[in-house]
Simulated scan of single mutants.
Amino acid sequence: MSNQTEYAYKYIRERILDGTFKPTQKLIESQLSELISVSRNTVKKALLKLEQENLVKIENNKGATIKSFTLEEVKNYLEIREALEGLIARSAAKHITDAEVDALEQLLLRMGDFLKQNQFDEYSKLNKEFHSIIYKASRNIQATEMVNMIKTQLMRFQFRTLLIPGRNESSFNEHQMIFTTLKNHDSEKAEEAIKQHISNVRTTIENNYQYLL
């Protein structure tokens, strides 16, 4: 992928994931070309890459549209993620190092501080780092790749769920429980804790779907 195509791809992708470009919105190549200051051919290549990630749908003679997921599709994705994250957490509990445990503990402290200050964007970034450490500790590259693909599909929901009253505190408590099980190298409890966390995310989205679009 050329530098310009990579730039266009990242530009469009970021705006899909942060909600600037909305689900079902049409992406007009000529407009994007002017907006990003690249050729239409470059935009076309970027959109094809986004289609491979299931973020964009391209139809002949209709152009590109931002992918929209039904509630049923979102629930299915999260059920798959729950199963995969359970496998990852079980393995991570066996293999996690003292240094990784320390890193998780430091992240939790900072997450708590950001939560108290209602800095949800910063909390969300650290949340991502927290899970990344667990993925690395698991040594299961294939499961991690599949989870990251699913998380990309649903990233637009992730930040908004923290705005649901009470969800941010629940999320933090769930991460504390996950941390404790990993620190204790308790594979069974770690799997149980992270599956409960994903299940709670699914329930939150299911109960508030119309507000999260």
Rank of each mutant, 00 (worst) to 15 (best):
20 T>Y: 15
26 K>Y: 13
26 K>A: 11
29 E>L: 11
31 Q>T: 12
34 E>P: 08
35 L>R: 14
36 I>E: 05
38 V>N: 05
43 V>M: 09
46 A>Q: 03
46 A>D: 05
46 A>R: 03
48 L>Y: 04
48 L>R: 11
49 K>Q: 12
49 K>D: 14
50 L>P: 03
51 E>T: 10
55 L>G: 09
56 V>W: 07
59 E>S: 11
60 N>F: 09
63 G>H: 02
64 A>K: 04
66 I>H: 02
68 S>F: 12
69 F>Y: 15
71 L>Y: 07
73 E>N: 10
75 K>V: 15
75 K>N: 14
75 K>F: 12
79 E>L: 14
80 I>F: 09
83 A>T: 12
85 E>F: 02
89 A>V: 00
90 R>S: 09
96 I>F: 01
98 D>E: 15
101 V>A: 02
104 L>Q: 02
107 L>T: 00
107 L>M: 08
107 L>A: 01
107 L>S: 00
115 L>K: 12
116 K>M: 07
116 K>Y: 05
116 K>N: 13
117 Q>L: 13
121 D>L: 14
122 E>K: 11
123 Y>A: 03
124 S>W: 01
125 K>D: 09
130 F>T: 00
131 H>L: 06
131 H>R: 04
133 I>Y: 03
134 I>E: 01
135 Y>H: 13
136 K>C: 02
140 N>A: 04
144 T>C: 09
145 E>C: 07
145 E>P: 00
146 M>R: 14
146 M>C: 06
147 V>H: 02
